[in-house]
């Protein structure tokens, strides 16, 4: 009885699926789905040889500091870094006094101790980076209806994060003629910018890094080309997303070495105990 009912249920589901398949296949053959412009022109991120790649990778402190400088002078006009506290900038190699100065240069929201009204005060290392816009409505209003996302986790919130950010920053270009020929309706709209690394190819953000020397790097640092600045700020955003990466990798190496030895010992012990037992 169980088998009979089961076979009926099986025939029903399998039959419905095969019917759906036939229906879909006929539709697929008679009217194949049109290729979308995203399918045709979206590009995967360019690969950069980051210092933090690989199981032993480390952040390049000088690069992170340059990236922080790019963030501060360029990105921070619109993008917040809300998960990051000033105190953690010590990890980039800044001294305590430098961290204090960085925090002090920014106004963080607080309550006026005398009137109890909302007010701002200079930041202290314990504060997090303040929001650029108090809320989404303000962010939309100031940015042509597009919300500049928080960048704290951007490098983990996109596939292949650091490469993606770098590719996006250096990927602005004019729309290929081929694209317009193939997809005449896909012309980049007013106030948008064509970028093949962006999921739907057109984004609201204007190219933020446009000219060499837009940021002035300190003595002994590489030339601030657009490519260099893009790499630096991408590395910095990888750090903001994964500040514990170095601890993670170095702990990991020790754990793996330990486990390898322990597993070999466990295997020998296992062989040992079974030595006189055929199995």
């Amino acid at each position: 009885m169980v088998r009979f009912l089961g076979a009926l249920v099986g025939l029903f589901f399998a039959g419905m699926l095969l019917l759906s398949f036939l229906w879909g296949a006929v539709a697929y053959v008679s009217a194949p789905p049109a290729e979308t412009v995203e399918h045709a022109f979206h590009e995967h991120p360019k690969k950069v040889a980051w210092s933090f790649n690989g199981p032993l990778g480390h952040y390049d402190r000088a690069q992170l500091q340059r990236g922080f400088q790019v963030y501060t002078e360029v990105c921070s006009a619109c993008h917040s870094l809300h998960q990051v506290a000033f105190r953690s900038l010590g990890d980039l190699g800044y001294s305590e006094a430098e961290v204090k100065a960085i925090a002090k240069a920014r106004q963080v929201p607080d309550v006026d101790p005398k009137t109890g009204e909302a007010a701002t005060r200079p930041g202290i290392p314990a504060d997090k980076f303040p929001l650029v816009y108090p809320n989404d409505v303000a962010a939309r209003a100031a940015n042509n209806n597009a919300i500049p996302p928080d960048l704290s986790l951007m490098a983990k919130a996109r596939h292949d994060g650091a490469n993606y950010i770098y590719s996006l920053l250096t990927g602005y270009q004019s729309q290929p003629a081929e694209l317009l020929k193939k997809f005449p309706d896909a012309k980049t709209g007013e106030g948008l910018h064509y970028n093949p690394y962006f999921a739907n190819l057109n984004l609201a953000m204007a190219p933020p890094l446009s000219a060499e020397g837009q940021v002035t790097y300190g003595e002994g640092q590489p030339k601030p080309t657009v490519d260099q600045m893009a790499q630096d700020v991408s590395a910095f955003l990888m750090w903001t997303a994964e500040p514990k990466m170095e601890a993670r990798k170095s702990t990991g190496v020790a754990v793996i070495v330990f486990l390898l030895i322990a597993t070999v010992l466990a295997y020998m012990s296992y062989q040992n105990i079974w030595a006189n037992k055929e199995h």
Partner: peptide, 15 residues
Amino acid sequence: RDFINIAAVSFAGVG
């Protein structure tokens, strides 16, 4: 043989 068993168990303990 005993040594290997003891070593394996000790490693597990340390872990």
